[in-house]
């Protein structure tokens, strides 16, 4: 399995986009821009729903309404994140693959946070039907925020490992 991943990483580094992001002076910051713009839309819309479930902030909309408002751009943001992230990964894929912080990020925190987000988003229609969400909804919203903090912490640690 790991051998397969290594082969995949090696192949990515040799692709035109992998070589491009690695060797061109301007491509790396622009690729990072794509990743960060996607992250802003993705995490901004995730946190809005989580905070509304927690009952923090204004109560102009219910969590269920906010979920529907943000749904489309939430997943557009996610696609932009993946596109930028894949390009950044391709530039030095074999180096990323052996990085401990990267392994925590992609191997554990991102999948767990992503699944948890899908669960929260799915349940928010019921939980958020009224102004005040039940305790389980508040716990779930808080847990999602903490999971994304874990993801960002692992990401910040990548250059240190």
């Amino acid at each position: 399995m790991y051998g397969l991943l290594q082969a995949f990483a090696k192949w990515l580094e040799g692709t035109p986009w992998g070589v491009g992001v690695r060797t061109s002076l301007w491509a790396y910051p622009f690729t990072q821009l794509v990743h960060f713009t996607g992250l802003s839309i993705w995490l901004g819309t995730n946190l809005a729903l989580d905070l509304r479930l927690l009952g923090l902030g204004k109560h102009r909309e219910t969590a269920a309404q906010l979920r529907d408002d943000l749904f489309a751009w939430n997943w557009i943001g996610f696609c932009i994140v993946v596109l930028g992230g894949l390009l950044l990964f391709s530039s030095t894929a074999t180096t990323f693959l052996v990085n401990v912080a990267f392994r925590w990020k992609l191997g554990l925190f991102v999948p767990v946070a992503l699944l948890w987000h899908i669960f929260v988003q799915w349940k928010a229609r019921d939980w958020g039907a009224t102004q005040d969400a039940p305790a389980i909804a508040k716990f779930s919203g808080l847990a999602e925020i903490l999971l994304w903090i874990c993801v960002i912490t692992a990401a910040v640690e990548i250059p240190n490992h």
Partner: peptide, 21 residues
């Protein structure tokens, strides 16, 4: 320093994303 960076990234994504919507 890592904690301050995490706060900076998290809050930056949070506010830019919500304003973008």
């Amino acid at each position: 320093y890592a904690s301050v960076s995490v706060i900076h990234y998290l809050t930056m994504f949070w506010f830019i994303g919500s304003m973008a919507v």
